[in-house]
Amino acid sequence: MFDFLGIPPQALFGQLLLGLINGSFYAMLSLGLAVIFGLLNIINFTHGAQYMMGAFGAYFLLQYLGLSYWWALVISPLVVGLTGVIVERLMLKHLYKLDHLYGLLLTFGLALITEGLFRNEFGSSGQPYRIPEQLLGGNNLGFMFLPNYRAWVVVASLTVCLATWYVIERTKLGSYLRAATENPTLVQAFGINVPRMITLTYGFGVALAGFAGVLAAPIYQVAPQMGSNLIIVVFAVVVIGGMGSIMGSILTGFGLGVIEGLTKVFYPEASNTVIFVIMALVLLVKPAGLFGRTT
């Protein structure tokens, strides 16, 4: 076997895979944020809490209804998305005419409430969630051991991200969505129900967070605070990528996950902060973000 700068390949590729996994979550969450921001002009601070709700959804379904991981993968995002639709109808829709910052404050408040309620019920310790039988075990690739579940997470996340990109950039529905992002009044004048589209977009973005939560449940422990630290990193990812482009969000998410993984190998002390440092550098060089449009 070869050594790379004195790092054993198992450690290098192991961290690379972990980085890719983290990148999958960054990509899915920043994608959801970008889709919501595009149409609603709101930064959804509740995104982390909704990701946590997705994971808890999977846990509840297994614990109380005996429904497997695969059912959870469908039902949990739908339920989380539905709560998103309710929140949009009851609260967010009153804020569109105000300063965008109020949307941030409201969703921050909702995140506090959600996290507080779950912490009241489950404490700060995590609940374990086991990997589904079909994805147990793994393959030895010669240079590293690849657990099946981790491979599945990367593939599932890539599929969902690319499907979202396809729908938004290549279908008629997506063209309505992009048009409404540019000029909602005009699109409404063409007889398209823009308010309903906004509601469903928010629901979709939130469901994406819930889906990420279900994927995360067997990897990380299902804990009330699992979303709050993640969401701040995702904000930095969004600043780095800029929210102008869907593909940009996906690429930035995966790329930064990998960079973070590599940092863990070469300079572990900085692994928590490397994304924030990159954000600072990007702000110096290209303030609009790597894929952003200057506004």
């Binding site: 404050l105 909702l110 507080g116």
Partner: peptide, 11 residues
Amino acid sequence: WVTIVQGIIFV
């Protein structure tokens, strides 16, 4: 509950 009450005040 402190967190929850803070959240409610925010909303």
